[in-house]
Measured scan of single mutants.
Amino acid sequence: MSDQEAKPSTEDLGDKKEGEYIKLKVIGQDSSEIHFKVKMTTHLKKLKESYCQRQGVPMNSLRFLFEGQRIADNHTPKELGMEEEDVIEVYQEQTGGHSTV
């Protein structure tokens, strides 16, 4: 019986991991920090939209990076291997420009 009891508790931990929340720091170019608590399985588009709304800027005017890689709207913290207190960097999107060649 103890084996049966242990097995469901392991499964519960697996389920808990799926719905687990982590805190992420979003740091802007001006070094301002906003902290977000997100589920591991939530699409990061929600975090990006919330950040842009707080900053009063359109979402397409900023780019969000985690460990140097651009974050897509459909990425989740779990897919990117994010952990508690990880940092997302935000930069002004640069458009235009010309070749110097």
Rank of each mutant, 00 (worst) to 15 (best):
S2H: 12
S2W: 12
S2Y: 12
S2N: 11
S2A: 13
S2G: 12
S2L: 12
D3N: 09
D3F: 05
Q4T: 14
Q4C: 08
Q4A: 11
Q4H: 11
Q4V: 06
E5A: 13
E5W: 10
A6M: 15
A6K: 08
A6G: 15
K7F: 08
K7D: 08
K7G: 07
P8G: 08
P8K: 05
P8T: 06
P8L: 13
P8M: 02
S9K: 15
S9D: 14
T10Q: 11
T10N: 13
T10H: 11
E11I: 03
E11S: 10
E11N: 05
E11Y: 06
D12F: 10
L13P: 09
G14M: 08
G14A: 08
G14W: 10
D15Q: 07
D15V: 12
K16L: 10
K16S: 12
K16R: 11
K17Q: 12
K17E: 14
E18Q: 12
E18P: 10
E18M: 12
E18W: 12
E18C: 06
E18I: 10
G19F: 15
E20N: 15
Y21D: 06
Y21A: 07
I22W: 01
K23M: 09
L24A: 04
K25M: 03
K25V: 10
I27F: 10
I27P: 02
I27H: 15
G28H: 04
G28T: 00
Q29S: 05
Q29P: 12
D30A: 12
D30Y: 05
S31V: 01
S31Y: 15
S31L: 01
S31W: 15
S31G: 09
S32C: 08
S32W: 06
E33G: 03
E33I: 14
E33L: 06
I34A: 04
I34T: 09
I34N: 03
I34K: 03
I34E: 02
H35E: 07
H35T: 15
H35P: 05
F36M: 00
F36E: 00
F36L: 03
F36D: 04
F36W: 00
K37S: 00
K37G: 04
V38A: 07
V38S: 01
V38P: 01
K39I: 02
M40R: 09
T41S: 12
T41R: 04
H43P: 13
H43F: 08
H43V: 12
L44D: 04
L44T: 01
L44V: 01
K45V: 10
K46C: 03
K46D: 06
K46A: 11
L47T: 04
L47R: 03
K48E: 01
K48Y: 01
E49F: 07
E49I: 04
S50P: 05
Y51P: 03
Y51V: 06
Y51W: 15
Y51Q: 03
C52V: 05
C52I: 00
C52H: 05
C52F: 02
C52L: 02
Q53I: 00
Q53P: 10
Q53E: 15
R54G: 06
Q55M: 15
Q55R: 15
Q55H: 09
Q55F: 07
G56P: 00
G56A: 07
G56K: 01
G56C: 06
V57M: 08
P58D: 02
M59L: 07
N60D: 12
N60Q: 06
N60H: 10
N60E: 15
S61V: 02
S61N: 03
S61K: 02
S61D: 06
R63D: 00
R63M: 07
R63A: 03
R63F: 06
R63N: 08
F64R: 03
F64H: 08
F64M: 01
F64Y: 01
F64L: 05
F64C: 04
L65V: 12
L65Y: 15
F66S: 02
E67W: 10
E67K: 05
G68I: 00
G68Q: 12
G68M: 00
G68D: 05
Q69T: 14
Q69M: 01
Q69D: 12
R70F: 05
R70M: 10
R70L: 12
I71E: 02
I71F: 00
I71P: 03
I71A: 01
A72H: 09
A72L: 14
D73P: 01
D73E: 03
N74M: 08
N74Y: 14
N74K: 13
H75N: 13
H75S: 13
H75E: 11
H75T: 10
T76M: 00
T76D: 01
T76Q: 01
T76S: 09
T76F: 00
P77M: 01
P77H: 03
K78M: 13
K78T: 05
K78C: 06
E79L: 11
E79K: 09
L80W: 03
L80M: 08
L80F: 01
G81K: 06
G81A: 13
M82A: 04
M82N: 03
M82I: 02
M82T: 01
E83R: 12
E84Y: 11
E85K: 15
E85A: 12
E85G: 15
E85D: 13
E85L: 14
E85Y: 14
D86Q: 02
D86C: 12
V87W: 06
V87H: 09
I88K: 02
E89A: 07
E89Y: 14
E89M: 09
E89R: 07
V90Y: 03
V90H: 05
Y91R: 07
Y91W: 10
Q92K: 12
Q92S: 13
Q92D: 07
Q92L: 07
E93N: 10
E93T: 15
E93H: 12
E93R: 09
Q94G: 01
Q94F: 09
T95Q: 00
T95L: 13
T95P: 05
T95M: 13
G96F: 04
G97K: 04
G97L: 07
G97V: 04
